[in-house]
């Protein structure tokens, strides 16, 4: 579950004030809004990367407002994916496990499991520079899911993809959601995307948030 209460964030002259919403555990929520409405800022605040002025963030019933990003257990896929250029796809999928000191065998099993789920088995030894948009997207998704987070935050994950790849990604995101049971907050400005994927749709406008469905 994601619960945001009376959140206030200021970035220069831009401000989000008193934002509150709740995404029930296991739901696929979509957050819509125009460019510059603060969707990404809100997502960053939930990850802990953006300092907040007031309010609270609860994840799975735990108040994480004062926790560092590393301690929140949130899978995050930023809009630009931010893949690590010095690592292979395999190393991306094993990164969070290496940080947690997992042994080799469970790490390899998890990498194989993710590669199978995301259809990137054949890409494991490739560097991100040689990947197509869809392949890079799958890699970033795998990296975010690698440590089995209960909450997944996706920042406009499909905006840079062509129509055909996007259709494939809709199916993949549905499969990932169904098989992992992760609570998803997916930011987009596309109503089609929101309707195809979302159990519930929120709209952010003029610094206020409202539920559409």
């Amino acid at each position: 579950m994601i619960r945001v209460r009376d959140l206030t964030i200021r970035v220069g002259s831009f401000a989000l004030e008193g934002v509150s919403f709740t995404v029930a555990a296991g739901r696929y929520a979509v957050l819509m809004g125009k460019t510059g409405s603060g969707k990404s800022t809100l997502l960053e605040a939930i990850t802990g990367l953006r300092p907040i002025e007031a309010g609270s963030v609860e994840l799975l019933g735990r108040d994480v407002t004062r926790l560092k990003p590393a301690d929140r257990g949130v899978g995050y896929v930023p809009q630009d994916l931010a893949l690590f250029p010095t690592m292979t796809v395999r190393e991306h999928l094993a990164f969070a496990q290496a940080i947690r000191g997992w042994d080799r065998t469970p790490t390899e099993q998890r990498v194989a499991e993710l590669a199978d789920l995301l259809g990137i088995d054949h890409l494991l030894d490739r560097q991100p520079q040689g990947l197509s948009g869809g392949e890079a997207q799958r890699t970033a998704l795998g990296r975010a899911l690698s440590f089995r987070p209960r909450v997944l935050l996706l920042d406009e994950p499909l905006s840079a993809l062509d129509e055909e790849t996007r259709e494939g990604m809709y199916d993949l995101l549905r499969t990932v959601h169904r098989e992992t049971g992760v609570t998803v907050l997916h930011v987009t400005h596309s109503l089609t995307e929101a309707k195809k994927l979302g159990d519930c749709i929120f709209r952010l406008a003029d610094g206020k948030i409202g539920e559409m469905a």
């Binding site: 990367l49 560092k68 590393a70 930023p78 931010a82 975010a144």
Partner: peptide
């Protein structure tokens, strides 16, 4: 951005 993602990964 890459450091930020690394922070969320633990």
């Amino acid at each position: 951005r890459q450091e930020q993602v690394a922070l969320t990964l633990g």
